[in-house]
Amino acid sequence: MTTAHDTATTELLAPLHAADPADLDRLHAAFVAAASAEGDLDVAYRTVDSPVGLLLLAATEAGLVRVAFQREDHDAVLERLATAISPRILRAPARLDTVARELDEYFAGIRQRFDLPLDHQLSKGFRRSVLAHLPEIGYGQTESYAQVALAAGSPRAVRAVGTACATNPLPLIVPCHRVVRSDGSFGGYLGGTEAKQLLLHLEGAA
């Protein structure tokens, strides 16, 4: 499937399918460097393996803008980013090296808080207020949807909190997995119930 994020790269490499993979990697790196230098790289992305599956990471110059689980369909996520932010999207792992390293440290149990610049342009209104509160829920702690609604300034907006968590563009980094039902059950999660359970067990919250 050809998507907008790598059309230019595909066209550039089309005559070189028989070339050495290392040569293609160098050519791609040169293409990315040129695009970045000329201001033509608005969204960089890469994928990383993790205990909760393959993750797509995407960043603008302002910061990390999207983390997507494999079940979300990474190609579809990139297409939506092309529409919502810019079609100038390229696989450019270097911009996301720090994100990948901090995620590795988190899953290894040696990092409890992320120290990353974030781009929140995909979240608006009350949803953004909810997501702004979530990092205040400490590592190894949980809050109910009702508690989050109260903290976000709308005590009756429990369902809206659930929607904000379900559409969180930065899961893991903005820890919506720490929001559970009032009875202590896990509730829904963008990455799936098993992923949420794994994260809470990793943090000692379940």
Rank of each mutant, 00 (worst) to 15 (best):
P15W: 13
V52K: 09
G109R: 05
G53E: 12
I85W: 07
L90W: 10
G109A: 11
D23A: 15
R91Y: 05
A59E: 12
A84G: 07
D23V: 15
A29T: 12
K124W: 00
A108I: 02
A22I: 11
D75L: 15
E72Y: 06
A30H: 08
D115W: 03
A62R: 11
T83K: 14
S129Q: 14
A19E: 11
V32H: 01
A22R: 15
R95I: 01
V65D: 07
A35D: 02
L24H: 04
I89W: 03
D20P: 01
R46S: 13
Q112A: 04
A92V: 12
L16Q: 12
L116D: 01
R91V: 06
V43D: 01
V43Q: 04
H74F: 05
L118P: 01
G109E: 06
I110T: 15
I85C: 06
A35F: 09
D73R: 03
K124S: 03
A33D: 10
R66W: 04
L13R: 10
L64N: 09
R66G: 03
D20T: 05
F107V: 07
R111S: 06
A22V: 09
A76H: 08
R91Q: 13
F31R: 00
L41K: 08
D42F: 09
D49H: 11
L81P: 00
H120G: 02
A37V: 02
Q121H: 05
S129E: 12
S36V: 03
A19N: 13
L12R: 14
P87N: 10
S36I: 00
L96S: 09
Q70I: 02
R101T: 05
Y45A: 09
V130N: 10
L116K: 06
A108F: 03
A33C: 02
R80W: 02
E102T: 09
T47K: 11
A33W: 00
P93R: 07
L56D: 08
F126N: 07
F126E: 06
Q121F: 00
R128S: 07
D104A: 09
A100Q: 11
Y45I: 03
L13Q: 13
D40K: 15
L41S: 05
A92T: 01
G53A: 14
E72F: 07
F69A: 12
I110R: 15
G39Q: 00
L13C: 14
R66F: 05
V43N: 05
A59T: 09
L41N: 03
A14Q: 09
A82W: 04
F114L: 00
T47Q: 11
D20C: 07
L24D: 02
D40Q: 09
G125V: 13
L13E: 14
L27N: 00
A37I: 01
A44E: 08
P117A: 10
D75W: 14
G109D: 01
T98S: 14
A19R: 10
L116E: 02
D42L: 07
G109F: 07
R26I: 05
A29C: 01
